[in-house]
């Protein structure tokens, strides 16, 4: 069953068609990769799905495992997050001056309720909500392996850990689908290996489906069950890693780049 189904998604920037009638599907519990050369339109595709851009055309349908299916194209980003899609960013966008724990706490915002009155009077309900929030956020940090940084400002984290914190923060929103935009970019081989373990673990334990953009081919080949390939805004291939690897169209798009790397 598809938790995400994108039909004919199109995004124009003035005269530039960055995403051109792309179809894509993610099934429940699947790890799917979206690859393609730089400037192919992968990040733009993510931005359309998560509401950062309003797509020029096409549909984005979601079917949460425990909810009713609906179309979400053009819906505001915070509402889409609330519906269960969470993302990370290619160029890290953490809340730099907040602590690691607070970054995760922000992720839980849309699942909680206390308002201004609660903040000022700090009644029993607010205090309990806050306590639970601190506890839950800490558990998430432990799961991702960031608990030793709990009170550190996000900007002081090593690069690889910042990428993991982005994942922790996304996870805190209780998603059924994680969209990861180049999660391994800038990581060393050791960090990449533990990232693979983490993503597999999250699918196992949290039951999330994953759609990831990645440049690192070896990572994509290990991790994903299916791969979509984009070039110049168009979807040029789709299939299992083995199929995609042999596809002449893909090889041509990556001319000069070694797919087996």
């Amino acid at each position: 069953m598809a938790v995400l189904e994108v039909n004919d998604l199109t995004m124009d920037f003035g005269g530039l068609r960055a995403v051109d009638r792309v179809n894509l599907e993610v099934n429940d519990g699947e790890i799917v990769a979206l690859i393609g050369p730089n400037g192919a339109g992968k990040t733009t595709f993510f931005n359309c799905v998560t509401g950062v851009y309003k797509p020029t055309g096409g549909q984005v349908k979601i079917a949460p495992p425990n909810g009713s299916p609906e179309e979400i194209q053009g819906v505001q980003p915070h509402k889409i997050t609330h519906k269960g899609l969470a993302r990370t960013f290619q160029n890290i966008r953490l809340f730099q001056n907040m602590t690691v724990l607070e970054n995760v706490m922000i992720g839980r915002h849309s699942r909680l309720h206390s308002g201004i009155g609660g903040a000022i009077f700090r009644g029993k309900k607010t205090r309990e909500e806050e306590k639970q929030l601190i506890f839950d956020s800490y558990q998430i940090l432990k799961k991702i392996g960031l608990e030793k940084w709990v009170n550190e400002q996000a900007k002081n984290l090593p690069y690889g850990e910042q990428r993991r914190l982005e994942i922790a923060r996304a996870l805190a929103t209780d998603p059924f689908l994680l969209l990861l935009d180049e999660p391994a970019a800038g990581m060393n081989p050791h960090e990449t290996t533990s990232l693979v373990d983490l993503i597999l673990k999250l699918r196992e334990e949290e039951g999330v489906s994953v759609l990831l953009i990645e440049h690192d081919m070896s990572l994509v080949m290990i991790l994903s069950e299916r791969i979509y390939v984009m070039d110049y805004g168009k979807r040029i291939a789709a299939g299992t890693p083995a199929q995609v690897k042999k596809d002449p169209v893909v090889i041509k798009a990556y001319l000069g780049e070694d797919i087996d790397a």
């Binding site: 509401g51 950062v52 915070h78 609330h82 953490l94 992720g107 849309s110 929103t173």
Partner: peptide, 10 residues
């Protein structure tokens, strides 16, 4: 800190 990320956090 970051308006886009903030929206994307719900």
């Amino acid at each position: 800190e970051d308006e886009i990320a903030c929206q994307s956090m719900g």
